[in-house]
Simulated assay, not measured.
Amino acid sequence: MAQNVKIREIVKDKTIAEIITNYPVVQDFFLNYNLQDLQKNLTVSQALEKILTEQLEEFGLDVFSLTEELVKFMATLVNNREEREKVQNITIIGGRNKQGEAENVTLTMAVGEVISIVGPTGSGKSRLLGDIECLAQCDTPTRRQILINDHPLSDEERFDMGNKMVAQLSQNMNFVMDLNVAEFLAMHAKSRLCENSEQVIKQCFVCANELAGEKFTMDTKVTQLSGGQSRALMIADAAYMSSSPIVLIDEIENAGIDRKQAISLLTENEKIVLISTHDPLLALSADKRIVIKNGGIHKIMETSDEEIESLKDIEKLDTIMLGIRQQLRHGERVYPLKFVL
């Protein structure tokens, strides 16, 4: 109720232009009522007084009732954002593999946890990510069910575009908009109602450049970003702008970015991270790993103390391989290796 009072004051006192600046999706509200040509330099009530009464009567509304509909619409946006921040865990209830055999597993993941998904190519890792992305309720080929905070979800909750709980970063991140990085981040900051948007935009940009192998500028067109730069930008976006509490990543090791830093960044920002990977370093750095076989969840393993100890040697090998990649990228010769683990 207090939220509605605050929104009502905004609608009463601010011009339409000021409202759209902070709540860009309000443009869609006016478009739905064929009111996209309202004078933006006026308040909502002032602008509505200048249009023909018939335009509102067509929808069975008057100035007061349309204003109330706008207040409800904006309050829903804000309330949805607050609800997303309350997600504390996600649970996967097993379904069936390709042979129709029951998975017989239940896995609950909490905020700040990283879960790796491993298995041969074609085993079904992407299918599991797909089930989580659509918050499956026993209605996909695997018959898995996904719970949020220990509860199943209604279709309204699953498919509400304003309340998207899952962000997915696929292997191929291709932009189609002719925007530069600054414009792209500004658009996302506005649509996600970010507070201190200028600071968040700068934070995302700096972070993306730290993750990416090759630097880019605010003026760089997003269509000109490399695959690694695109993934770095979207990971920073997911960490600092997106309120989606669940982040799915498909084979981050192929992106050419600092993968350990990327995962650490997401968990520090209270995300639940699931990552499909063939990378031993990422698989063993996770809190648990899901092993996929024949299209089903074969087993769930917790990272053992011995595996954590082995990570030290794996990290040494990874550093060596990174050095060789850098030598090749800069046209240098690679000579016989001499090292001791």
Rank of each mutant, 00 (worst) to 15 (best):
T267N: 06
M234A: 04
K271P: 09
Q224M: 09
L233R: 10
T220C: 10
L211T: 11
R231S: 15
S230T: 02
A286K: 02
T223V: 13
R192C: 02
K221A: 05
D287Q: 08
L284Q: 12
L225E: 02
R231A: 15
T223G: 08
L282V: 15
I257T: 07
I290M: 12
A182K: 13
V273Y: 11
T267F: 05
Q229H: 08
I290S: 07
E210T: 11
R231M: 15
R259E: 15
T220F: 06
A212N: 14
G227H: 03
N209W: 10
I249A: 02
D258F: 12
Q261I: 00
R259N: 13
A208W: 10
N269E: 06
A286Y: 03
E183A: 08
G228R: 07
I272W: 13
L265Y: 08
V291F: 01
S243I: 00
G295H: 05
K202R: 11
V291W: 03
K190M: 00
N180Q: 13
E214G: 06
E198M: 08
Q203G: 01
Y240D: 03
I246C: 00
S244R: 09
Y240M: 03
L193C: 04
E195L: 01
E183R: 05
V222I: 15
E268N: 04
K288L: 02
R289T: 00
Q229R: 06
K202Y: 03
M218E: 09
I252W: 02
S226M: 04
N254D: 11
A182N: 07
Q229K: 04
D219M: 14
V206F: 15
I249N: 02
E198V: 09
S264I: 10
L282A: 13
K260A: 14
A212T: 14
N294K: 14
D237M: 12
K190R: 09
C207S: 15
S276E: 14
F205C: 01
H188D: 05
M218R: 00
G228W: 11
E253L: 10
V273C: 13
A236G: 10
A286Q: 01
S276A: 15
I235A: 07
E183G: 02
G256A: 05
K221C: 05
R289K: 14
K260V: 14
L225S: 03
F184S: 05
T223F: 02
T217G: 07
K215Q: 11
A232W: 12
L282M: 15
G256W: 04
V222P: 11
K260W: 09
E210R: 13
F205H: 10
A182P: 02
E198A: 14
F216T: 07
D287W: 03
I263M: 05
L282S: 13
V181F: 07
I235Y: 08
C207A: 14
K190N: 00
D279E: 11
G296D: 07
F216I: 09
A232M: 12
A189Q: 02
K190F: 01
A232V: 12
A186Q: 14
